[in-house]
Design a protein around this nucleic acid. Sequence first.
DNA 1: GCCGTTTTCGGCCCGACTGTTTTCAGTCG
Length: 585
Amino acid sequence: MSRNAEVARELEALADLYEAQGVEYKPQMYRRAASNVRDYPEAIEDLVEEGQDAVEEIDAVGDAIASKIVEYIETGEIEKLEQLREELPIDMDEITSVEGVGPKTAGRLYESLGIETLDDLQEAAENHEIQELEGFGEKTEQNILDHIGFAREAQKRSRLGDGRPLAEDVEDFLETVDDVECVQVAGSTRRWRPTIGDIDVLVGSTAGEAVGEALTNWERASETIEVGATKTSIRMDRLRVDLRVVDPEEFGAAIQYFTGSKDHNITLRNLAIDQGKKINEYGVFDVSAVDDPQSGQRVGDRLAGEREDEVYDALGCDWIPPELREDRGEVEAAATGDLPDLIGMGDVHGDLHTHTDWSDGDETIAAMLEGAAKFGHDYVCISDHGEGPGVFGDNGLSDDDIRDQRDEIEAARDEVDADVEVFHGIETNVTEDGELADVSEDVLEELDVVIASPHSALGVDAGDQTDRLVAAVEHDLVDVLGHPSGRLINERPAMEFDATELAEAAADAGTALEVNSNPARLDLWGAAVKAGVEAGATIAINTDAHSTGEFGFVEYGVHTARRGWCEPADVLNARDADGVRDFLD
DNA sequence: GCCGTTTTCGGCCCGACTGTTTTCAGTCG
């Protein structure tokens, strides 16, 4: 990706340091700017190239922040940030990862005890220096000690693929608890964000205390963080689970509120204010005849709250699928009836990227064909690795192997009693220069599907890789660009590239961009998929399955595509087999 | 520091929980 996330982190560092100094309002503005820069579809370095005015086009970025962004891109650092870091040499990310410790506390701990690192913090807590400070006490100090170990371990967000199954277990458990009328997972899990910070779950019940208690007593709860009548938090398999209990009559408003995103909710709230209404977790209220709408939680005439679709309807909006709720124009589209008709699981007819034991897959060709048919696919593409870097154990296929494999696919097709069409493909490596590695053009021409994927030279210091990826999609014989960024969530960052430029090249060349459904990849992701859809590129939702069990990953891919505003017409494998053949020809 | 005017200043989303207070600040979502 671009350098947007990197710039966003710099702005967030400024926000933290200003907050630690007790500066008002600047921190929240820097955070808003950071969030908008991170999600901006164009590469920030390109905007800087165009000039500071282009940077100021980003919402919440004005003269001061834009000039800092320009300074950072041009010189590699922001003088003001370096100055603040000298004044407050705190390892802010590390220290604020301790539950209950934010930037302000970090600032005070530095001023009074000189605490800069997690080690300093632990030492001070163990020596009982913290409880001596004004505004701190024994419990705060113990709390820091209790959470410091966890902070060391879990600074990362969890992959959706790790958290989602746990969220479903929480949901299943709560459904068995007395007096629970309805249960639903909210937050980034419901929006299918690639990573989640915690699990948010909402219950409709009039017995909040008892429900909270039941959760803390659940055998899967390893720790109780807090417990109350409306809010209870536990730890489960190292993830934090936040339970909210609300009146069933206000469930719709609450599930809307707690699904977020925060930016989506702010836009919605501002829309409500424009209409003389107020929206919060308790409902939508007409406050046009109320003197002070801030005077209470439930002031004015209640317009909606029990059901989520009624909440949106009360604001003149269509119901917005959770995957779209990232403040990328969905509220405006919902108000004008222009929301996309998103792709669903039922629209997917096949899988165009799978592996077998011919390369690094676990199962035979026949087993994969049977598995695909059993999963409900009409067709599947066997696409093992070609020779080249990035393949474990040097087990990529040579030209001869590929021709032999074709014969075995023919044999398996006859042998297997499965009603599934088979495409023969290859996953070949995109070299540093955007060339295809190690499979001859003759063989590539004989194959039904050529997937080109980056597997080597993925280093973050490699610089902008847009040219490399554009070269790959423009190659005559390439049909699909596989896992374009090469990222492995929480392990390896995405390569830098300009999603819009890549999308336009892919659209022109008639090459599909992959949404790799493996939860460790989810590559491309929402914002980049949206750039593809807007450019008119075709999207392929593939699993990259290395076993029959992994066909199910497609669910993650479909929801990721939905985050990119994908309709069935945008998606290659939402076509029938003939439709796919038309695209490949 | 940004933004949108009832446009060059005044307000900035807002509520629950905790721990430390004795009316509130900080954190979190």
